[in-house]
């Protein structure tokens, strides 16, 4: 119950953050409802993933369990990934700033691994997936408050 609420807040603040982010930010973000790319331009697999599935899922503090929302996002991701059989898949796990560097590197790896395991269950070949962790080193949202932290506790799927 509490977890769901957090996720909802996270999504809401994410939109706000996107709107205010400078255009030069390369990180693709989104929940699948906001990005509007002109159809005439060829989109990269990553752009398609972000637009149609959302490229990331979020976690509770010090947790790596996938919420129902996260599982839904990953199901959509698996569908998109099925259209790009050549793409290699890198799952990046991240943590918020409320932990120590080394512990957070481990926590990020756990989150990335949880995503990989779930995708493998959905039929994405595990051999195509690699995982890594950035711990708290690469926050998506700058801010020292729960809204920012909720955005930063994430696993991002990157298609290459």
């Amino acid at each position: 119950m509490r977890l769901k609420l957090l996720t909802a807040i996270a999504a809401a603040t994410l939109l706000a953050a996107c709107a205010s982010e400078p255009a030069s930010t390369t990180q693709t973000t989104g929940t699948g409802t906001t990005t509007q790319t002109p159809p005439s331009v060829t989109r990269s697999p990553q752009e398609v993933l972000a637009a149609e599935a959302g490229d990331r899922v979020f976690f509770a503090f010090d947790r790596f369990a996938l919420s129902a929302d996260a599982q839904a996002t990953l199901r959509r991701q698996a569908t998109v990934i099925g259209r790009f059989p050549q793409a290699r898949i890198m799952i990046e796990g991240h943590a918020d700033e409320r932990g120590t560097r080394e512990y957070n590197l481990a926590l990020g790896e756990r989150r990335a691994n949880a995503v990989r395991d779930f995708m493998a269950q959905l039929g994405v070949p595990a051999a195509r997936i690699t995982t890594t962790s950035f711990g708290k080193e690469r926050p998506a949202v700058v801010g020292s408050n729960e809204a920012a932290w909720a955005q930063n506790r994430r696993a991002v799927t990157v298609l290459q």
């Binding site: 790596f64 080394e102 590197l105 481990a106 790896e109 756990r110 691994n113 949880a114 395991d117 962790s133």
Partner: peptide
Amino acid sequence: MSLAEGGAT
């Protein structure tokens, strides 16, 4: 050092 693999460190 620590090694992380498969969700365990």
